[in-house]
């Protein structure tokens, strides 16, 4: 492993932060969702990195499950977005504010 681990981790950190930025700043629900996927991928990179460092395949197993869950999440999330669009004719995240206190 000629590239030391901290580099991979730094890349992962940067991607994660980018994803966070997207969630905070963008208003389109689809883009927010994609930012979340970006964050998930960053985490996957971290997990695989550490699996390699420790020499144990468990980290990869976890990534496997993250993949599964991300897939299921995307499916249902998009279905919800579709429903909201049908009801409100918008995918603007700020328009969905009925759960206010």
């Amino acid at each position: 492993m000629s590239v030391p681990a901290p580099f991979y981790l730094a890349l992962s950190a940067a991607l994660f932060a980018l994803g966070t930025l997207g969630v905070l700043v963008r208003r389109s629900a689809l883009v927010v969702f994609m930012s979340v996927e970006l964050m998930l991928n960053a985490v996957n990179l971290t997990l695989v990195t550490f699996a390699r460092v420790r020499g144990a395949v468990d980290g990869q197993i976890v990534v496997f499950f993250v993949l599964v869950v991300a897939a299921a999440e995307v499916v249902i999330g998009l279905a919800i977005i579709v429903n909201i669009f049908r009801a409100r004719d918008t995918v603007d995240v700020d328009d969905v504010d009925l759960l206010r206190g």
Partner: peptide, 8 residues
């Protein structure tokens, strides 16, 4: 991240 992850 930079605080190191030890030897591979």
């Amino acid at each position: 991240a930079a605080s190191g992850a030890g030897q591979a």
